[in-house]
Design a protein around this nucleic acid. Structure first.
Length: 361
DNA sequence: AATTGGCGCAACCGCGACTCC
DNA sequence: GGGAGTCGCGGTTGCGCCAAT
């Protein structure tokens, strides 16, 4: 275990959040209210004294290397659980809550550090599109990753992309951007990575879900949306059945990971299948079913088809583009694509080009 | 070299759910 | 049944780093 020096860098005296806990300035009291307010003031004073006493006893802020070692050694000897009792027994001047957080988010030996892989990013985007901000639920499907890590990824990277697009991260427009631009490119990158390492794709769940894939040959910068996934069980290069199986195995990983997790809810979440989880030997049929489930929300495939036409029709056919835009509420996109956006490969201020999306990775 | 602003991430908080007595 | 203690989750904060100016 390599303990990062930064964990000790802050040291004592850095107590984020303390100011927020302080009571604000009290408004002037009227006479009839005085007695009650004086009692409340006394109570408040006692509370402040109690908090001050606690503050002397309990440390907050960044963890030191010594504290980390103490916690690691204690858990190695006694295991997790009963965090408040653990904190006291280990001699740590921390709340149980703080110990739990430090262990789960930083010290756990099975944690995976470093940047998210393309596979993991795909999975996050896909799961978030279905579950929203259910970070722990999403994390349950990414072995070695914490909900905090995923939450931070979303807030920093994904929301940054939404900002670039000048739209809300929960808007349909941004979701379209993710689904039709970002995710296919991630899938492409993931496939390339696996090909480079000559490994089967480990967890391309979005492909299983019927996500359109980007054609590998996009020398022009244009993206072809492959809509054949839904009605074919042929072996697509980036969406092979093996990837489906390994995705399923990723879930079983989680189940075992959650075995040492106390929370029944967490375990249940880990064991929960992704939508209507198909048997391993029928992923492609199930993909169609899942796609139909998604169609309940919006017309995925007609939109994909429209975008495909957009990309292939070229900038010249403005009439066609505006017709499609009107049909699919993609006016902004068409504008962006045709006015020096995706079709020309150059960047624009408010809308992504493919190059922009990629640079933002 | 100094300053500034943005970003990433660890840690905190509040709250609801759960468990135990 | 209900109160106290605990746990887990999602949201927020603020420090440190680093690139741009």
């Amino acid at each position: 275990m390599v303990l990062q020096q930064s964990s000790a860098a802050g040291g004592a005296g850095m107590f984020p959040g303390v100011a927020a806990c302080r009571p604000g300035p009290r408004p002037a009291a009227t006479a009839p209210m005085m007695a009650k307010q004086e009692r409340e003031a006394d109570d408040e004073h006692e509370e402040e004294q109690r908090q001050a006493a606690n503050a002397e006893e309990l440390r907050r802020g960044p963890w030191t290397v010594d504290e980390d070692l103490t916690l690691i050694n204690y858990i190695a000897d006694h295991g997790e659980g009963r965090w408040n009792a653990l904190a006291r027994a280990a001699g740590l001047k921390r709340t149980g809550k703080s110990c739990r957080l430090r262990w789960l988010n930083y010290l756990r030996p099975d944690l995976k550090r470093g940047d998210f892989t393309a596979d993991e990013q795909l999975l996050i985007l896909d799961l978030h599109s279905r579950w929203g901000n259910r970070w722990s639920k999403i994390a349950a499907h990414l072995p070695g990753r914490t909900d905090n890590e995923i939450k931070n990824y979303w807030r920093t990277r994904v929301q940054k992309h939404a900002k670039q697009l000048n739209c809300d991260v929960n808007s349909k427009r941004f979701k379209d951007a993710m689904r039709f631009l970002w995710m296919p490119r991630l899938a492409e990158r993931a496939a390339a990575q696996h090909q480079h390492h000559r490994q089967p794709s480990p967890s391309l769940t979005p492909c299983i879900m019927g996500m359109p894939t980007a054609a590998p040959s996009s020398s022009s910068g244009l993206m072809m949306l492959d809509t054949t996934v839904s009605n074919s069980n042929s072996n697509s290069s980036s969406c092979s059945p093996s990837s489906a199986v390994t995705s399923s195995s990723s879930c079983s990983n989680l189940t075992s990971e959650s075995a040492h997790d106390d929370g029944a809810r967490h375990a249940a979440a880990a064991a929960e299948p992704i939508l209507t989880a198909p048997a391993d030997d029928d992923y492609w049929g199930a993909a169609t079913t899942m796609q139909q489930q998604q169609n309940d929300h919006y017309d995925f495939w007609s939109t994909a088809s429209a975008l495909q036409h957009l990309c292939t029709a070229g900038a010249a056919d403005h009439h066609f583009q505006h017709q499609v835009a009107a049909d699919h509420d993609l006016t902004g996109w068409v504008q962006g694509f045709s006015d020096g956006g995706i079709l020309s490969g150059s960047s624009s201020d408010n809308l992504w080009s493919l190059d922009d999306i990629w640079r933002m990775q």
